[in-house]
């Protein structure tokens, strides 16, 4: 319980800072919105083409906007060496990791909540046909992204070329997650919806999240201590 309470404290601190500055959220949402606008001009508004491309567009927007947020959220911890202060606190370092991951997950979810309706609006993508499973798959995908992303963003905090290295290291590990997210979304908007495939990929995402959560919890402390 103490771990969760302290994780919530760290997450609330991040959200409080973000609510005050709105710097990360606006940047992420603007970038994701811009991607959707580019897609709207670049792709034909043919129903079949949109059904085939919209799931990929959604997950690419989440990945790119999420990476921007991830980098900036950890950059903030560098500015006054506050990451050192967090790691020095007498709380399990797992709480620091979970707190950062939770706050990033909430920011990425907010971005997904912006760019999903925009895809529907600009491209006419039928993403809201089955909203329940769509919310579940986005939630699982965002959890996986935040968990893996937080570990690497924290590890690269003191590396000079971290902005370049973060996506280079992160994306190969996230490929299975984005493939699963795209496949699930595609199965959801196909006519008729392929719930067998949806269930398969949701299970895959659940396992992915569980495996990387365990690995991250296991390695976080040894990765952030020099």
């Amino acid at each position: 319980m103490s771990v969760l309470r302290q994780a919530a404290r760290v997450a609330w601190k991040d959200l409080r800072i973000e609510l005050r500055s709105r710097e990360i959220l606006y940047t992420m949402a603007f970038f994701a919105g811009l991607l959707v606008v580019v897609y709207a001009f670049a792709f034909p508004r043919d129903e079949r083409a949109v059904r085939g491309a919209a799931p990929g567009m959604l997950w690419v927007a989440i990945a790119f906007a999420g990476t921007i947020g991830l980098g900036r959220a950890f950059d903030r911890e560098r500015e006054n060496d506050t990451m050192r202060a967090l790691l020095l606190a007498p709380v399990p370092r797992l709480a620091v990791f979970l707190g950062k991951a939770i706050s990033i997950a909430l920011l990425v979810l907010a971005v997904a909540a912006v760019c999903t309706p925009l895809l529907v609006l600009f491209l006419g993508a039928p993403l809201f046909t089955h909203p329940g499973p769509l919310v579940l798959v986005i939630l699982l995908g965002v959890i996986g992204f935040s968990v893996v992303g937080s570990v690497f963003a924290a590890t690269l905090l003191k590396v000079r070329s971290r902005d370049v290295l973060l996506p280079v290291i992160l994306y190969p590990l996230l490929i299975p997650l984005f493939v699963a997210g795209t496949k699930t979304t595609m199965a959801l908007i196909s006519t008729p919806a392929d719930f067998h495939a949806v269930w398969y990929w949701i299970q895959f995402l659940g396992i992915y999240d569980a495996v990387f959560l365990v690995l991250s919890v296991w390695t976080f402390e040894s990765l952030v201590i020099e």
């Binding site: 404290r9 409080r16 800072i17 006054n80 060496d81 506050t82 202060a85 606190a89």
Partner: peptide, 21 residues
């Protein structure tokens, strides 16, 4: 480095530390 968050007030920074400790 101050180890304090620039976007939080003095009270908020100290409240966070008090909670963690």
């Amino acid at each position: 480095a101050s180890l304090c968050y620039g976007e939080l007030t003095a009270h908020e920074n100290l409240e966070l530390v008090a909670g963690l400790y």
